[in-house]
């Protein structure tokens, strides 16, 4: 764990952990609101938005990407409504068609446009570029206290760190609103809590986390992190406060173990090359969910409808 680790592994692991936590926190509430697929939808729909934003602005920067993602979300909502009405099909089908089509369109636009100057191509959109986000200027742990070296940290790390802090602060500040409005929307409204605003703010926060995580780790991790750590956390406890902690812990474990397995796992089994860190992180989070399903202390509660609760 010397200079090489700091140079090549520290920043990708940190970016992976921060991305995972930023997505897992809002994911807890999305799952409890039976809106888990919204996280999935967001991570699909933002791709064409980000690509178009890049083509228009010519840079990979936070603000244009957020605007592009927001624009794509609006287009998605309009398309869903239009297809639902004109096609007279159920909302779920309409959503499924729009999300996949927009994601596919994003992939095609990306492939056909000249993005060779930046880390934005089809492979990165899916799997991110975690392995390339290294800290070359670092010479060891002491570089953490060297301003010159710190200035050369990857921009992606700074951005995801800022977003992660924002997500944590929002979760803490609006904790009571989130808890009450997620459990009992009508009661929250009667108390004067703006329930609809809380729901909207949650989706916007999830979208911001998705966009920030997207550029570093790709859409595979985003989709996995919205759902796997919170779902596994729900199986570990019957209290929301503890569930949030469990989800953050699972997100961290997934990111660290996933990165290590991707980098060294193939070598242990006699392979030559590392595998995709993003894919391995998502796979580890799925493995954790699987273990929680088998051994989690409160697994019997999940999925038990209110009819059965006697």
């Amino acid at each position: 764990m010397g200079a090489e680790f700091v140079q090549f592994s520290l920043t990708p692991i940190l970016i992976g952990v921060l991305s995972a936590i930023a997505c897992a926190l809002p994911g807890n509430f999305l799952i409890l609101r039976r809106q888990a697929l919204i996280g999935d939808a967001i991570s699909h729909v933002v791709l064409p938005g980000i690509v178009v934003a890049f083509l228009v602005s010519g840079v990979v920067a936070a603000i244009p990407m957020l605007l592009g993602a927001a624009g794509a979300a609006i287009v998605a909502v309009v398309l869903i409504e239009t297809i639902k009405r004109l096609g007279k099909i159920e909302p779920g089908a309409s959503m499924g068609v729009v999300f996949t089509t927009m994601f596919a369109a994003g992939v095609v636009i990306l492939e056909k446009s000249d993005t060779s100057r930046v880390h934005l191509d089809v492979e990165h959109a899916l799997m991110g570029n975690l392995e390339t986000l290294i800290w070359l200027r670092a010479e060891g742990w002491h570089s953490l206290f060297d301003p010159a070296a710190l200035a050369s940290l990857p921009d992606e790390l700074i951005r995801i760190a800022v977003v992660c802090v924002i997500v944590v602060v929002l979760t803490l500040v609006f904790w009571r609103w989130l808890k009450i409005a997620t459990f009992d929307e009508g009661f929250a409204q009667a108390l004067g809590i703006p329930s609809a605003g809380v729901g909207f703010g949650l989706v916007v926060t999830a979208a911001v986390a998705a966009v920030a995580a997207f550029e570093a780790v790709g859409s595979i991790i985003v989709i996995a992190m919205f759902i796997c750590p919170p779902a596994a956390a729900r199986l570990m406890t019957n209290r929301l406060e503890l569930q949030i902690w469990w989800s953050a812990a699972f997100a961290t474990i997934s990111a660290v173990l996933g990165y290590v397995f991707a980098g060294y796992g193939p070598l242990w089994f006699g392979g030559q090359n590392a595998v995709s860190a993003a894919g391995m992180i998502a796979a580890v989070s799925g493995g954790i969910l699987g273990l929680a399903c088998l051994y989690g202390p409160h697994r019997s509660r999940v999925g038990v409808g209110r009819e059965e609760a006697t």
Binding site: L32, R34, K179, T182, F183, D184, G186, F187, A190, L191, R234, T237, N238, R239, L240, L242, Q243, R301, V302, G303, V304, G305, R306, A309
Partner: peptide
């Protein structure tokens, strides 16, 4: 206000005291 009991998901991770 006491809403209808069936209007919420009782599988929500909360204790009686939380509610």
């Amino acid at each position: 206000y006491v809403p209808q009991r069936a209007s919420v998901d009782w599988d929500f991770p909360a204790t009686v005291m939380d509610v």
